[in-house]
Design a protein around this nucleic acid. Structure first.
Ligand SMILES: [Zn+2]
Ligand SMILES: [Zn+2]
Ligand SMILES: [Zn+2]
Ligand SMILES: [Zn+2]
Lengths: 133, 133
DNA sequence: ACTACTCTCGGAAACGATTGTCAAATCCGT
DNA sequence: ACGGATTTGACAATCGTTTCCGAGAGTAGT
């Protein structure tokens, strides 16, 4: 019944290495940063491969992706379901947050103006307590 | 009283041309699109100049800027004060929206987690009534 | 109007994140 | 272990945006 004929997903050393990094990582990080971390750990993986695997993981909803002000895409492991992020500008520490009120408000506003197929983006940035010293 | 010692802002043909386009434009548009429009109108302006002037206008809070999924920066004239956008994916038609509830929620969430200097981004995307036919 | 001093313009080159290419390496079912 | 399909990775290409820098234009003062 499933209409999804996704790619086969082989279990390669590189795929495991990227997944392992993301499992540990606390905040959001760019593909290049992850590539650097891998190099430092000796588990070297080609840059293109890092990009490809991060995208695959994000497509499978195993990672959240967001773009920073510099236009870089940042990745982080995420829980399932719709949620947003409170991110520290300094250290990248991230808290997943939910807001049913906001969800309803966004849908209502869109509906009021006759918009359909609505979705939204919402991120909160700030300086976390630890970094405010 | 004003502490702003900003750049002198000369009144050039190019600056006027870009400002004129933005005054008319309904939805969000990219720098390159605006460059094309100018070319079509005969008021040709160098691409770098279009970029520079759009940034200047955005810095002066005369334009809103947002990034689309392709990583392009889109510009549109905006009213002053904090607000968000409801944007049609098809035609770019945009409605400025405000939500005091959302503002309070975002600040409260950040405060709960000890974050300071908080700001947020929020955009709503959908298909407008006209385009849903 | 003329000059001098800047600011601004614009075309080309530089940039940087991401994607495409494609031969070689690796998986994995048999 | 074999063989076909997938994945990798070094490199080139793409594309929006920024920077460079010599030429051009706005502006204040005369
Ligand atoms: Zn922090
Ligand atoms: Zn939401
Ligand atoms: Zn529309
Ligand atoms: Zn807001």
């Amino acid at each position: 019944m499933s209409t999804t004929s996704e790619s086969p997903q082989r279990n390669t050393r590189q795929r495991r290495a990227v997944a392992a990094i993301m499992a540990d990582l606390e905040g959001f990080a760019s593909a290049q940063q992850i590539h650097d971390i891998l190099k430092q750990r000796g588990e070297s993986v080609g840059l293109s491969t890092v990009y490809r695997n991060l995208q695959a993981l994000a497509d499978a909803d195993l990672l959240d992706a967001l773009r920073n002000d510099d236009g870089e895409t940042l990745y982080r492991r995420c829980s399932s379901g719709h949620h947003h992020h409170l991110v520290c500008r300094q250290c990248g520490r991230t808290v997943e947050v939910e807001g049913p009120t906001v969800e309803r408000w966004a849908d209502a506003v869109a509906d009021d103006h006759g918009f359909r197929d609505v979705e939204h983006t919402l991120e909160i940035f700030g300086t976390c307590g630890d970094c405010a010293s």
